[in-house]
């Protein structure tokens, strides 16, 4: 039995050494990434100091043109959104940002999913490579599993399944948006669908998920507490009207109670009936994103210096 344990120990030591060496290479690749997902996350957590920060999932990443926001508001803007993410990721990014500075304006793109489904901490696992260097995001990632803190001692585990997106920017740049796009991910394609008849009816109401709601409340509260002006936005979907979901009703309530402007575009026919604005039913293409951002900023601009924000709830045409 001693022989078995001795050999297991040798293999574990070799594995640990391999892990450390691989970690050095992987950390280097992460830190020197010319663009792409890891560049973006690193920038959001460690370097961004813009006046305006956009946070959301893929709809946040694709629909909000940072340059338009900068030009219109005369403030610098960074889009810290990331596809496939939800409230756990938003909270982690928030912790990373607030540990350094408080942006003047935060635009939160919130989807029904963000409040109505269980928070997916596993998706926020894309932040694992930053766990060791960013203590502020650890409480979020620790919720992935009870032993996450232990597993994340391994650099190989921290980079689990990340190689494709880690290495890609070294060969092909701009696929997740160029650095000059400041976090925005432009999508050039045009959806080739027309609405056949009426818009899809309002979906059935789904109850809110208390854990997601709690995460969202914390998100809003922490930004407000640090003096950031928060704007809540619901992006449009093609061919579908959503105006009375549980999530939207909760956003309305939050807007009223916390004096936060809310912009609901998911029932705005100027957007939801125009296939030419979309790359797929949930995401706007470049043209749609530009028009959407311009429209939104026209609404936001007068409020930036206003002290009575709650009057402007539901400002959609």
């Amino acid at each position: 039995m001693r022989k078995l344990f001795a050999k297991i120990a040798v293999i574990l030591v070799l594995l640990a050494a391999f892990d450390v060496l691989a970690g050095v290479v992987l950390d280097w690749l992460r830190d020197h990434s010319p663009d792409g997902r890891y560049y973006k996350t690193k920038y959001s957590l460690e370097a961004c100091d813009e006046d305006v920060v956009v946070i959301g999932s893929s709809r946040g990443e694709i629909n909000y043109v940072s340059q338009i926001i900068e030009d219109s508001l005369g403030m610098r803007c960074w889009n810290a959104s990331r596809g496939g993410q939800g409230t756990p990721y938003f909270r982690a990014i928030q912790e990373g940002v607030l540990s350094r500075y408080a942006p003047k304006i935060v635009i939160l793109n919130i989807d029904d999913n963000d409040l109505e489904t269980q928070p997916n901490y596993e998706h926020a696992g894309v932040l694992r490579p930053f766990y060791q260097s960013h203590p502020e995001i650890r409480p979020i990632l620790d919720k992935t599993s009870p032993f996450e803190w232990l597993l994340l001692k391994s650099r190989l585990y921290a980079y689990n399944s990340s190689y494709y997106y880690l290495i890609r920017p070294y060969f092909i740049q701009g696929l997740d948006g160029k650095t000059s796009d400041k976090g925005w991910k432009p999508r050039l394609e045009k959806m080739n669908v027309e609405i056949n008849g009426d818009l899809e009816p309002e979906p059935n109401k789904v109850p809110l998920h208390p854990e997601s709601v709690a995460l969202f409340d914390t998100l809003v509260h922490k930004f407000q507490e640090r003096g950031c002006k928060v704007f809540l936005v619901v992006s449009p979907n093609f061919g579908r009207t959503v105006s009375a979901s549980s999530a939207i009703e909760y956003l309305r309530k939050t807007s009223r109670e916390r004096d936060i402007p809310l912009f609901i575009y998911s029932n705005d026919t100027a957007f939801i009936t125009k296939p030419g604005y979309y790359v797929d039913p949930d995401h706007l293409n470049v043209e749609g994103a530009q028009i959407f951002t311009q429209h939104l900023i026209r609404q936001i601009k007068p409020l930036v210096h206003s002290n009575h924000l709650s009057q402007h709830v539901d400002t959609v045409r």
Binding site: I11, L14, L15, F18, D19, A22, S154, L156, Y157, Y159, N160, S161, Y163
Partner: peptide, 12 residues
């Protein structure tokens, strides 16, 4: 064995 373990940890 080390490569297989590393492979499992990193791509599992």
């Amino acid at each position: 064995m080390v490569v297989m373990l590393a492979w499992i940890i990193t791509l599992g």
